[in-house]
């Protein structure tokens, strides 16, 4: 069974759970395939947690969920050294972070101290407690969620740390048909069970293959043009960094891989750009005069077909 068939199957499965969010699910898978962390920004009740659960199950990953609150301490996340009277020594008790897939719910509710502990772990793939370093399991993914409105009592993620997340997606309201289907299912009371379709080994292989995917000069210049557009034009308050351009290409490759192609085409870039670039372009600008997403503006201004 080819990987894209596996992906299709997993998509099918997750889609039956969160109806009508195929594109977002695909983006989330892309993000994980590219080895990056995912930020989901949406209102409560949109299926953020369900999605994370489903992903974990389909990928056969060890999953934990942490609800972030203002009194959550870094130790609650990382783990603590506890003195064991029997052995007369300190024993490290792993926190919820020691899992393959960690769902950090409402990340902006926690204090900056806790946030930065998480972000550090995300970056380093290891945690340090009392001077000893503990390696996190591999693969290690973080799916963080945050609530866009009702920001009172929250600590918005610092701008510099937003781009630690490879992607930021919004689930949004389902369309009428999807919601109808969902409601019907609820009445039926059937909740489809999810199986592990993609094993961690297969995921690892796929990640390798993704990295080696062919990205032609034409694609690279397209990505460059996009990035440069954001730097040249005064319409973009936060131009894209080289890290962003790397992220765009990486995600485009994953997207192409999921689509079953062995090379990247402009549509791949276009498909992922919103998720990869929007939060980097916008940062925490909430009151901005810009109604159309920046990433869309960016795409509109660059011709993918030119010499």
């Amino acid at each position: 069974m080819s990987f894209s068939a596996l992906i299709d199957q997993s998509l099918e499965n997750i889609d039956s759970l969160i109806i009508g969010k195929r594109h977002q699910i695909k983006l989330a898978l892309t993000c994980l395939l590219a080895g990056g962390h995912l930020l989901i920004e949406d209102l409560p009740g949109m299926g953020k947690t369900t999605l994370s659960h489903a992903l974990a199950e389909v990928l056969g990953l060890k999953f934990s969920r942490v609800q972030f609150t203002s009194d959550l301490l870094p130790a609650d996340l990382l783990g603590v050294n506890i003195f064991e009277p029997q052995k007369q020594r300190f024993q490290f008790h792993q926190g919820p972070l020691f899992n393959n897939l960690v769902l950090a719910d409402e990340i902006n509710r926690a204090s900056p101290k806790t946030q930065s502990a998480l972000l550090e772990a995300m970056e380093e793939h290891q945690v340090s407690v009392d001077g000893t370093t503990h390696q996190l399991p591999s693969p290690f993914f973080v799916i963080a969620t945050q609530n866009p409105v009702n920001q009172s009592g929250t600590y918005p993620l610092p701008e510099s740390q937003l781009d630690r997340f490879l992607m930021k997606i919004e689930l949004g309201y389902p369309d009428e048909a999807s919601e109808r289907a969902m409601l019907k299912e609820q009445i039926n009371g059937e909740k489809p069970a999810l199986d592990c379709i993609i094993t961690p080994e297969k995921l690892n292989q796929a990640q390798q293959a993704t990295a080696n995917l062919h990205a032609s000069d034409a694609i690279i210049s397209y990505v460059l043009k996009l990035v440069q557009q954001s730097r040249q034009s005064a319409d973009f308050p936060h131009p894209l960094s080289p890290r962003a351009s790397k992220a765009i290409l990486k995600c485009s490759k994953s997207w192409a891989y999921i689509a079953g192609r062995d090379h990247v085409i402009p549509e791949d870039v276009q498909a992922v750009l919103g998720a990869v670039a929007e939060h980097r372009l916008r940062h925490n600008q909430l009151l901005s005069q810009q109604t159309t997403p920046y990433s869309q503006l960016l795409l509109e201004r660059v011709d993918p077909v030119s010499d």
């Binding site: 085409i265 549509e267 660059v302 993918p304 077909v305």
Partner: peptide, 11 residues
Amino acid sequence: QRQYSQGPEDY
């Protein structure tokens, strides 16, 4: 007509 930002596959 192809839109300015339309990708080749889309078109």
